[in-house]
Design a protein around this nucleic acid. Sequence first.
DNA 1: CCCTGATTCGC
DNA 2: GCGAATCAGG
Length: 223
Amino acid sequence: MSCGGPTLNTMDGMFAKISFFGGISDSIWPYLRRIFMAWTDERVATLKKLWMEGLSASQIAGELGEGVTRNAVIGKVHRLKLSGRAKPAPSAPRARKPRSTSASPSTPRRPASTGGSVSGNTSSTPRRRQTVHAPVSGANALQMNTEVDANVALATAQEAEIFIPVEERISLLQLSETTCKWPIGDPLNDDFHFCGRNSDEGKPYCEFHSKRAYHTLDRRKKS
DNA sequence: CCCTGATTCGC
DNA sequence: GCGAATCAGG
């Protein structure tokens, strides 16, 4: 008639850890996470759903709660083996890294937010940034806000105080590997064109627009 | 700089 | 199993 053996063991381990002074907040985090933020069937279901809908890992993390990081989401996704959702071609075998094998004994993997206690100390807002990519960028997960993308494109095009001389403007067909693909203007208008300035190899935009594209333009405030 | 997912590996 | 750190890429 005993019930809950394993649970006691877990708790036991937890208290053993926290009862030891020194780097407490660091030690208890994993445990607290397990207790308050475990991957319940419900959360896993949410994760699956959102992932399949094409939301990015960080967006899903934000949706699941402050305590969930995008890494956690990605890790879980892989463990569930539902990764490749829109993976066209891996192509590159992805060389693995040596990653300092047992570099130093005391290599804290992460400072964590040492601040102290779980009671929200603070100083820092957790990392909740979200950016809306510029148009024409990823192929993966932006089937969701096309509307937003359009708005952003418009807003930034107007916001950008840049003027490309008529003779330098290029059309879609003139784009190449080294031309900035930042669209300017309304595609329905005659004056629509692309930036066309030189872009670094492998980059879709010129230096100026690269900044714009990857800078936070709109931070969606989640309720 | 910002972001994305993928992978490794200590816990 | 979990996820931070890291990697590789846009």
